[in-house]
């Protein structure tokens, strides 16, 4: 009888332990880590957190702008990129999250151009910041380093890098740290805009010009989210972006209706592929002077934020 009782106790203990492990697996890995107040912020007005997270999550991948630049035939240049050592001096979570965004966009640019030899120092800087922000568990430095040193694995490196970024961002949003997630996407957005505006200074390309003009709508979505968070650093950031928003006021975006078409073609593997060509189009109206003003303001803001 006593023996049986012992077995029941053992069984209960094992199941309880398993439940505990399972719950920590369903949720976050660091649910019990205490965050400083500055890292975990309540918003200053009522705003549906799901709606806010939906908007933050919609922002483009850290490689899309770089892919657009590369696709337009513009050669690679390191002169656009930030020195990753700059981020060593970032002390607050605000600066680190923004810096992580800057570095992620630059890493995307290096990845798209397959510049594996320069990637390592960015990986080192990202590892440090991600650990400081308690999202280091989503950044597999050893694997990324190994992929970076093997040139033939460049596609894997790009996929793993973007997934690391995606997982860090998602983790922040799911753990009441949407303020840091918003800063992360803002950092990616500013650095990506900086890259494309710098390139367009040297190359007259209507596609790049259109892409710069369209950022007016992205900024319109980003600003209200950043205004939700309190603190001097957020106020400063909003002030900078409002300056850019004022410059973007000159850009006009209109829409023309049209019929959507579906086409098919046979790819190199003999498989039928479908292409849906969206009907209508958005038309961006912006003079060269207005473009120049966007370029200048973006450069000024980006450099100020890096030096914060």
């Amino acid at each position: 009888m006593i023996m049986r009782k012992k077995w029941y106790i053992s069984l209960a203990f094992v199941i309880t332990t398993m439940l505990q492990f399972n719950c920590s697996g369903c949720g976050s890995d660091d649910e019990h880590i205490e965050f400083k107040e500055e890292e975990k912020q309540e918003t200053n007005v009522k705003f549906d957190p799901d709606a806010m997270n939906e908007i933050i999550a919609s922002f483009s991948s850290p490689v899309e702008m770089a892919a657009t630049i590369q696709n337009s035939g513009v050669p690679f240049s390191t002169k656009y990129l930030i020195n990753p050592e700059v981020t060593d001096n970032y002390t607050t979570s605000f600066k680190k999250a923004l810096g992580l965004g800057f570095l992620s966009a630059d890493l995307g640019y290096l990845n798209v151009y397959s510049k594996t030899s320069q990637i390592l120092e960015y990986l080192v800087a990202i590892r440090k910041i991600s650990e400081d922000l308690k999202v280091g568990q989503f950044f597999d430095f050893a694997l990324l380093k190994r992929l970076a040193t093997t040139a033939e694995n460049i596609d894997s490196l790009l996929i793993m890098s973007v997934q690391s970024y995606q997982n860090m961002d998602e983790h922040l949003r799911n753990n009441q740290r949407s303020n840091l997630s918003a800063l992360l996407v803002t950092g990616v957005w500013i650095e990506s805009l900086y890259l494309i505006t710098q390139v367009s200074k040297e190359v007259d390309n209507p596609e790049l010009k259109d892409r710069i003009g369209e950022q007016k709508n992205i900024l319109k979505n980003l600003l209200p989210i950043l205004k939700l968070f309190q603190g001097k650093e957020y106020e400063q950031l909003v002030q900078y972006l409002e300056e850019l928003d004022n410059v973007y006021d000159f850009v006009k975006i209109s829409y023309e209706e049209g019929e959507t078409e579906t086409k098919t073609y046979i790819d190199s593997y003999g498989q039928e592929q479908t292409v849906i060509c969206q009907g209508g189009q958005s038309v961006i109206s912006m003079t060269n002077e207005e473009l120049q003003e966007i370029i200048t303001t973006t450069e000024k803001i980006r450099n100020k934020l890096i030096a914060l």
Binding site: E214, N217, Y255, G258, Q273, T274, V275, I276, C277, Q278, G279, G280, Q281, S282
Partner: peptide, 9 residues
């Protein structure tokens, strides 16, 4: 899969 040619940001 399918491809989508986007004409409206």
């Amino acid at each position: 899969s399918f491809d989508f040619l986007c004409n409206k940001t």
